[in-house]
């Protein structure tokens, strides 16, 4: 029996009592080699957490729906005869699964889920498509609002910022090259409009002068995701950010665990065509939404829907989705502030 190894693993699994804890500390302090061994194990432990989360989020591991059979595998580890029987059964199930996978592989260009390299290639194609000078309108809906952790709550008690215009039912018009118009509806029904025409950003708030700025992000800073470089209004940079901060995989045929993607027929004549889902799971150490799902047409790489799941936003965590609602061509002038207010309204340059 290797006592230090048991202590090390017991520490990781939080099963040590006080005397064992003291024994571990003593052993670690005895030699840098001992500390080195501990360090190696902690690196593995950390990576196991990351990989297990990725597996879970991507549905790559069989969920614990059959605990009895899994338990049996371990209980019988010393009973060779029973184990062989179990393995034969597992082999049968595995063979069936393998057959299904092979069939699925045959039918799908991505074999269900992609490698990281293929996913990265798909993401690059989505970015290229999104840079095209094509107008698109997305309807924004807030699916869920949850309070964030306790520290956020403590902070929020001291904050006295004016309420942000609600994101729910907002309309986002975008066009490649960083042009956008975001229309949010205040609780009194009035429109609060922000936008960017590539030269200036601007804001049209009811009862206030129009404000414009040469800082193109000036009026986007209150939007969910902005502080994590995952801006709703700059989809290209958001997609680029996913490459840096997330584990990405592609799944054929739409959503895996969440509600299926709906694309209005009027907006997507090719909606009958194959649809793919890009799932980006945030890596530990990076901030932002826990998971982002991008549903898009397999052939054109046009985005039909984006879901930001558990997006930190002030004291809350939002799950919100952008759904493509129109491809109507919008003139360049639409992205200028003058298209969104009466000509007599004063304009203040910041």
């Amino acid at each position: 029996m290797n006592i230090p190894e048991e202590l090390l693993h017991g520490y990781l699994d939080q099963t040590l009592d006080a005397p064992q804890q003291t024994a571990l500390q003593h052993w670690l302090s005895q030699s840098p080699d001992n500390m080195r061994r501990f360090t190696e194990l902690l690196l593995l432990h950390n990576q196991l957490r990351s990989e297990s989360l990725s597996f879970t989020a991507l549905g790559a591991v069989t969920p614990p729906a059959l605990p009895q059979s899994a338990a049996a595998v371990h209980r019988n580890s010393t009973r060779h005869r029973q184990r062989r029987r179990m393995l034969r059964r597992l082999f049968g199930v595995s063979a069936l699964l393998l057959l299904l996978l092979v069939l699925f592989d045959f039918l799908s260009p991505f074999g269900g889920q992609t490698t990281a390299t293929a996913a990265s290639g798909e993401l690059s194609r989505l970015i290229r498509n999104n840079q095209l000078a094509v107008s698109r309108t997305y309807q924004i809906e807030v699916e869920n609002v949850a309070l964030a952790g306790r520290r956020y709550n403590r902070k929020s008690a001291g904050e006295k910022r004016p309420p942000k215009p609600p994101m729910d039912n907002a309309l986002l018009h975008v066009r490649g090259g960083g042009l956008f118009v975001l229309i949010r509806y205040q609780t009194d029904g009035q429109e609060f409009i922000t936008g960017c025409d590539a030269a200036h950003s601007w804001a049209v708030r009811p009862g206030s002068p129009v404000r414009i700025s040469s800082d193109l992000q000036r009026f986007s800073r209150d939007l969910p995701g902005h502080e994590y470089s995952l801006s709703l209004v700059e989809l290209t940079s958001t997609l680029q950010q996913l490459q840096q901060t997330c584990d990405v995989q592609i799944v054929d045929g739409g959503s895996v665990t969440d509600p299926p993607v709906t694309t209005p027929d009027s907006a997507a004549p090719d909606s009958a065509a194959a649809e793919r889902l890009l799932i980006a799971v945030r890596r530990p150490g990076f901030q932002g939404p826990r998971r982002i799902e991008v549903a898009y047409a397999a052939g054109t790489h046009e985005i039909h829907q984006i879901r930001f799941i558990d997006m930190p936003y002030g004291p809350e965590r939002l799950t919100l989705r952008l759904t493509l609602s129109s491809r109507e061509t919008l003139p360049e002038s639409f992205f200028n502030h003058s298209s969104h207010h009466s000509p007599d309204l004063p304009v203040e340059q910041e």
């Binding site: 699994d13 099963t15 990989e51 591991v61 614990p64 605990p67 009895q68 899994a70 338990a71």
Partner: peptide
């Protein structure tokens, strides 16, 4: 699969050995 499930419970669900044991009858 049984071993993968153990890691799933320990690392994705953050369960300790006692809780995993309860779930798996071990």
């Amino acid at each position: 699969p049984g071993d993968q499930l153990l890691f799933q419970l320990r690392y994705a669900e953050d369960l300790k050995p006692a809780a995993i044991g309860e779930q798996l009858g071990m």
